Amino acid sequence: MTQYLFPPAPTPSLPVCGVPQRFPVARLFFVGRNYHAHAVEMGKPVDKSSERPFYFTKSPQTLTHSGATVAYPSETGNFHHEMELVVAIGKPGFRVPAEAAHELVYGYACGLDMTRRDLQLAARDKGRPWDLGKDVEQSSVCSEIVPMPGVILDRGALALEVNGQVRQKSGLNMLIWNIREIIADLSLFYHLQPGDLIFTGTPEGVGPVVPGDRITGSIEGVGELALTIGARE
Protein backbone atom coordinates (compact mmCIF):
# COMPACT_ATOMS: atom_id res chain seq x y z
CA MET A 1 0.00 0.00 0.00
CA THR A 2 1.32 3.43 -0.94
CA GLN A 3 2.10 5.63 2.03
CA TYR A 4 1.84 9.42 1.80
CA LEU A 5 3.36 12.14 3.95
CA PHE A 6 -0.12 13.64 4.32
CA PRO A 7 -3.58 12.60 3.08
CA PRO A 8 -3.96 13.22 -0.67
CA ALA A 9 -6.77 15.50 -1.78
CA PRO A 10 -10.01 13.71 -2.68
CA THR A 11 -10.95 13.34 -6.35
CA PRO A 12 -13.13 16.27 -7.45
CA SER A 13 -16.57 15.06 -8.54
CA LEU A 14 -20.06 16.21 -9.46
CA PRO A 15 -23.51 14.78 -8.80
CA VAL A 16 -25.31 13.18 -11.74
CA CYS A 17 -29.02 13.67 -12.24
CA GLY A 18 -30.98 10.47 -11.64
CA VAL A 19 -28.16 8.18 -10.54
CA PRO A 20 -26.43 7.63 -7.17
CA GLN A 21 -22.90 7.52 -8.61
CA ARG A 22 -20.90 10.72 -8.90
CA PHE A 23 -18.96 11.88 -11.96
CA PRO A 24 -15.20 11.94 -11.14
CA VAL A 25 -13.63 15.01 -12.70
CA ALA A 26 -10.26 14.72 -14.44
CA ARG A 27 -9.41 17.96 -16.29
CA LEU A 28 -11.08 21.32 -16.86
CA PHE A 29 -10.79 22.80 -20.35
CA PHE A 30 -12.16 26.22 -21.30
CA VAL A 31 -12.82 27.61 -24.78
CA GLY A 32 -11.90 31.28 -25.11
CA ARG A 33 -13.99 33.83 -27.01
CA ASN A 34 -16.57 31.47 -28.52
CA TYR A 35 -19.42 33.99 -28.95
CA HIS A 36 -18.96 36.84 -31.43
CA ALA A 37 -20.56 39.52 -29.26
CA HIS A 38 -18.43 38.56 -26.25
CA ALA A 39 -15.26 38.59 -28.36
CA VAL A 40 -16.17 42.11 -29.47
CA GLU A 41 -16.86 43.32 -25.93
CA MET A 42 -13.43 41.99 -24.93
CA GLY A 43 -11.84 43.93 -27.79
CA LYS A 44 -10.75 40.80 -29.68
CA PRO A 45 -13.15 40.01 -32.55
CA VAL A 46 -12.95 36.50 -33.99
CA ASP A 47 -12.78 35.60 -37.69
CA LYS A 48 -13.68 31.91 -37.88
CA SER A 49 -12.53 31.70 -41.50
CA SER A 50 -8.92 32.34 -40.49
CA GLU A 51 -8.75 31.30 -36.82
CA ARG A 52 -9.06 28.16 -34.73
CA PRO A 53 -10.47 27.79 -31.22
CA PHE A 54 -8.09 28.49 -28.35
CA TYR A 55 -8.16 27.02 -24.88
CA PHE A 56 -6.99 27.49 -21.34
CA THR A 57 -7.16 25.12 -18.38
CA LYS A 58 -7.91 25.38 -14.70
CA SER A 59 -6.94 23.12 -11.84
CA PRO A 60 -9.61 20.52 -11.03
CA GLN A 61 -9.32 21.75 -7.45
CA THR A 62 -11.08 24.99 -8.53
CA LEU A 63 -14.28 22.98 -9.12
CA THR A 64 -17.14 24.29 -6.97
CA HIS A 65 -20.69 22.97 -6.72
CA SER A 66 -23.73 25.01 -7.62
CA GLY A 67 -25.33 26.56 -4.55
CA ALA A 68 -22.04 27.36 -2.84
CA THR A 69 -20.91 30.62 -1.30
CA VAL A 70 -17.40 31.59 -2.38
CA ALA A 71 -15.19 34.30 -0.98
CA TYR A 72 -14.48 37.34 -3.12
CA PRO A 73 -10.89 36.49 -4.11
CA SER A 74 -7.77 38.34 -3.08
CA GLU A 75 -5.76 40.72 -5.28
CA THR A 76 -8.61 41.80 -7.54
CA GLY A 77 -11.08 44.64 -7.74
CA ASN A 78 -12.93 43.32 -10.80
CA PHE A 79 -14.31 39.80 -10.27
CA HIS A 80 -16.48 38.75 -13.24
CA HIS A 81 -19.12 36.13 -14.00
CA GLU A 82 -19.13 34.06 -17.21
CA MET A 83 -22.04 31.67 -17.83
CA GLU A 84 -21.29 28.62 -20.00
CA LEU A 85 -22.51 25.24 -21.23
CA VAL A 86 -20.30 22.42 -19.92
CA VAL A 87 -19.73 19.20 -21.85
CA ALA A 88 -18.94 16.12 -19.76
CA ILE A 89 -16.75 13.61 -21.60
CA GLY A 90 -17.63 9.94 -21.02
CA LYS A 91 -15.35 8.04 -23.43
CA PRO A 92 -11.70 8.39 -24.47
CA GLY A 93 -10.87 9.93 -27.81
CA PHE A 94 -7.88 11.25 -29.75
CA ARG A 95 -8.00 12.91 -33.18
CA VAL A 96 -11.74 12.47 -33.22
CA PRO A 97 -13.48 13.49 -36.47
CA ALA A 98 -16.30 15.98 -35.99
CA GLU A 99 -18.88 13.52 -37.26
CA ALA A 100 -17.93 11.10 -34.45
CA ALA A 101 -17.66 13.69 -31.68
CA HIS A 102 -21.05 12.74 -30.21
CA GLU A 103 -19.61 9.36 -29.20
CA LEU A 104 -17.52 11.04 -26.47
CA VAL A 105 -20.40 12.98 -24.88
CA TYR A 106 -21.71 11.68 -21.56
CA GLY A 107 -23.84 14.68 -20.67
CA TYR A 108 -24.04 18.39 -19.96
CA ALA A 109 -24.10 20.87 -17.10
CA CYS A 110 -24.37 24.58 -16.43
CA GLY A 111 -21.10 26.28 -15.56
CA LEU A 112 -19.54 29.53 -14.39
CA ASP A 113 -16.01 30.61 -15.24
CA MET A 114 -15.41 33.20 -12.51
CA THR A 115 -12.54 35.49 -13.46
CA ARG A 116 -10.22 38.10 -11.96
CA ARG A 117 -10.79 40.30 -15.00
CA ASP A 118 -8.28 43.00 -14.12
CA LEU A 119 -5.51 40.44 -13.73
CA GLN A 120 -6.51 38.56 -16.88
CA LEU A 121 -6.48 41.70 -19.05
CA ALA A 122 -3.19 42.94 -17.59
CA ALA A 123 -1.59 39.58 -18.38
CA ARG A 124 -3.14 39.47 -21.86
CA ASP A 125 -1.88 42.93 -22.74
CA LYS A 126 1.66 41.97 -21.69
CA GLY A 127 1.56 38.62 -23.51
CA ARG A 128 1.73 36.69 -20.25
CA PRO A 129 -0.22 33.59 -19.14
CA TRP A 130 -3.71 34.12 -17.74
CA ASP A 131 -3.29 31.86 -14.72
CA LEU A 132 -3.73 34.47 -11.98
CA GLY A 133 -6.82 35.82 -13.71
CA LYS A 134 -8.45 32.50 -14.54
CA ASP A 135 -7.10 29.67 -12.35
CA VAL A 136 -8.78 31.15 -9.28
CA GLU A 137 -9.69 29.07 -6.26
CA GLN A 138 -13.40 28.07 -6.28
CA SER A 139 -13.85 29.70 -9.69
CA SER A 140 -15.10 26.75 -11.78
CA VAL A 141 -18.71 26.46 -10.72
CA CYS A 142 -20.80 23.58 -12.06
CA SER A 143 -24.31 22.22 -11.66
CA GLU A 144 -25.17 18.55 -11.55
CA ILE A 145 -24.52 16.69 -14.80
CA VAL A 146 -27.51 15.68 -16.88
CA PRO A 147 -26.74 12.42 -18.73
CA MET A 148 -27.26 12.72 -22.49
CA PRO A 149 -24.99 10.05 -23.97
CA GLY A 150 -24.29 10.67 -27.63
CA VAL A 151 -26.36 13.86 -27.80
CA ILE A 152 -25.02 17.05 -29.40
CA LEU A 153 -26.75 20.21 -28.16
CA ASP A 154 -26.88 22.86 -30.86
CA ARG A 155 -29.59 25.15 -29.55
CA GLY A 156 -31.21 26.24 -26.31
CA ALA A 157 -31.49 29.49 -24.37
CA LEU A 158 -28.73 30.49 -21.94
CA ALA A 159 -29.20 33.20 -19.32
CA LEU A 160 -27.59 34.61 -16.18
CA GLU A 161 -28.97 37.00 -13.57
CA VAL A 162 -27.31 38.86 -10.72
CA ASN A 163 -29.69 39.73 -7.88
CA GLY A 164 -32.61 39.08 -10.24
CA GLN A 165 -31.33 41.39 -12.99
CA VAL A 166 -30.51 39.83 -16.36
CA ARG A 167 -26.84 40.20 -17.29
CA GLN A 168 -26.30 37.54 -19.96
CA LYS A 169 -28.82 36.18 -22.46
CA SER A 170 -28.04 34.20 -25.60
CA GLY A 171 -28.38 30.77 -27.17
CA LEU A 172 -26.24 27.73 -27.88
CA ASN A 173 -26.83 28.28 -31.60
CA MET A 174 -24.67 31.41 -31.28
CA LEU A 175 -21.48 29.47 -30.48
CA ILE A 176 -18.74 30.29 -33.01
CA TRP A 177 -17.37 26.75 -32.78
CA ASN A 178 -20.08 24.22 -32.02
CA ILE A 179 -19.79 21.18 -29.77
CA ARG A 180 -18.68 18.84 -32.55
CA GLU A 181 -16.01 21.28 -33.72
CA ILE A 182 -14.71 21.87 -30.19
CA ILE A 183 -14.37 18.17 -29.37
CA ALA A 184 -12.73 17.43 -32.71
CA ASP A 185 -10.24 20.28 -32.42
CA LEU A 186 -9.38 19.79 -28.74
CA SER A 187 -8.79 16.08 -29.34
CA LEU A 188 -5.98 16.97 -31.76
CA PHE A 189 -4.00 18.31 -28.79
CA TYR A 190 -5.12 16.03 -25.94
CA HIS A 191 -6.15 12.43 -25.48
CA LEU A 192 -9.59 13.24 -24.09
CA GLN A 193 -10.59 11.00 -21.20
CA PRO A 194 -13.73 10.14 -19.24
CA GLY A 195 -14.07 12.77 -16.53
CA ASP A 196 -12.86 15.70 -18.64
CA LEU A 197 -15.11 18.77 -18.61
CA ILE A 198 -15.18 21.32 -21.43
CA PHE A 199 -16.55 24.78 -20.65
CA THR A 200 -17.62 25.91 -24.10
CA GLY A 201 -17.43 29.71 -23.83
CA THR A 202 -19.55 32.60 -22.58
CA PRO A 203 -21.79 35.07 -24.41
CA GLU A 204 -21.77 38.85 -24.08
CA GLY A 205 -22.80 40.61 -20.89
CA VAL A 206 -19.98 39.50 -18.59
CA GLY A 207 -19.53 41.86 -15.69
CA PRO A 208 -18.44 42.43 -12.12
CA VAL A 209 -19.93 41.08 -8.93
CA VAL A 210 -19.42 42.22 -5.34
CA PRO A 211 -19.76 40.58 -1.94
CA GLY A 212 -23.37 39.74 -1.21
CA ASP A 213 -24.37 39.27 -4.84
CA ARG A 214 -26.48 36.24 -5.79
CA ILE A 215 -25.82 34.74 -9.23
CA THR A 216 -28.35 32.45 -10.89
CA GLY A 217 -28.05 30.91 -14.34
CA SER A 218 -29.90 28.50 -16.58
CA ILE A 219 -29.54 26.63 -19.86
CA GLU A 220 -32.61 25.32 -21.59
CA GLY A 221 -32.82 21.54 -21.41
CA VAL A 222 -29.82 21.30 -19.05
CA GLY A 223 -30.67 22.94 -15.76
CA GLU A 224 -29.84 25.76 -13.39
CA LEU A 225 -27.05 26.86 -11.10
CA ALA A 226 -26.56 29.38 -8.32
CA LEU A 227 -23.64 31.06 -6.58
CA THR A 228 -23.37 33.57 -3.74
CA ILE A 229 -20.39 35.91 -3.47
CA GLY A 230 -19.10 36.03 0.07
CA ALA A 231 -16.95 38.53 1.94
CA ARG A 232 -13.56 39.60 0.61
CA GLU A 233 -10.65 37.47 1.70
Rank of each mutant, 00 (worst) to 15 (best):
L5R: 10
P7R: 15
P10S: 10
P15L: 01
V19I: 11
P20L: 07
P24C: 11
A26N: 10
L28S: 03
F30H: 12
V31P: 02
G32L: 13
R33T: 03
H38Y: 03
M42H: 00
K44R: 06
P45M: 02
V46D: 11
D47V: 12
D47Q: 13
R52K: 14
Y55A: 04
T57Y: 06
Q61S: 14
L63P: 01
V70G: 05
A71H: 02
F79S: 03
H80A: 01
H81E: 05
M83T: 02
L85G: 03
L85H: 01
A88P: 07
I89N: 06
G90N: 06
G90P: 09
F94L: 13
V96Y: 15
A98H: 11
H102F: 12
C110S: 05
L112Q: 13
M114K: 11
R117K: 03
R117I: 01
Q120F: 09
G127V: 07
W130F: 04
W130R: 04
D131S: 03
K134M: 07
D135V: 09
E137M: 13
Q138K: 10
S139Q: 04
S139Y: 08
S140P: 12
S143R: 04
I145S: 04
I145M: 07
V146A: 02
P149T: 12
P149K: 08
P149I: 12
L153K: 06
A159R: 14
G164R: 09
R167C: 05
Q168D: 00
Q168R: 10
N173I: 10
I176P: 06
I179F: 05
R180V: 15
I182F: 10
I182Q: 15
A184S: 15
L186H: 05
L188T: 15
H191G: 03
P194C: 01
D196V: 02
L197K: 12
I198N: 07
I198D: 05
F199S: 10
T202I: 08
P208I: 04
G212M: 07
I229D: 05
E233T: 12
